[in-house]
Nucleic acid binder design. Structure first.
Lengths: 109, 109
DNA sequence: TTTATTGATTGCAATATTACGATTAATAAA
DNA sequence: TTTATTAATCGTAATATTGCAATCAATAAA
């Protein structure tokens, strides 16, 4: 039904999936990479850098902000976005735990 | 338009997004965790373990198989699934590179 | 005040995803 | 052969996502 049955999964599983999902679009990957690469914060440059329309970028930024991975501060008419360090580290920790599951004992098929 | 403009992004960005996307559903997270946890391979047990119908699980398994993260071998009437070690390690490497971007120099907002 | 400029929001069209009942294909057991 | 058993596939309904034109709100500049 296009709807995810979150209630049958653990909080951890849902959290991993939510973080993975927001990273599951190349535009959001590109935005994050850009924010990491630029020393200063980026604002509407993202629209120029990435080849998507302003409302589309704005929407992707919103999703990243909703999960707390970035933060934006208003500076005059423009908005300065940057990585939310603390939340990025938390997200990373959760994802690393999942990715680093012990594969050594796997011996099958 | 519900379609992702993959052509304007780099191969790396698309690859990261594809891997993240397949991890972006709690059922697939649960399947992978189960495959990691079980010593022997799991087959139709997944349908019982996770509370989703057989066609739904089958569909999620297909997506994981399409990206190469798992492999399935037929054993009589059942199919034995397990983590594809080599591809998991490759995927992990790509995701770790992305997640481990240097955050120390970020100082803004 | 009037006129940019910037970015969020709204509304919509196109496509994708999730979930499952029904069916099918393939092998195993009787 | 007939009858389970297992899992893939098909078809479909419900919902979500992606993308953008148009518009709006807020501040800056003239």
């Amino acid at each position: 039904m296009g709807i995810t049955k979150t209630e049958i999964f653990s909080d951890e599983q849902n959290k991993i999936a939510l973080f993975a999902k927001v990273l599951g679009h190349p535009a959001r990957v590109a935005i994050l990479q850009r924010l990491f690469a630029i020393d200063a914060c980026v604002c509407g440059d993202l629209v120029n850098e990435i080849g998507l329309a302003q409302p589309t970028i704005s929407q992707h930024l919103k999703e990243l902000k909703n999960l707390g991975l970035i933060q934006g501060t208003i500076e005059g008419t423009s908005v300065c976005y940057c990585i939310h360090k603390e939340n990025w580290i938390k997200m990373k920790s959760i994802m690393l735990d999942f990715l680093n599951q012990d594969i050594s004992k796997q011996d099958c098929c």
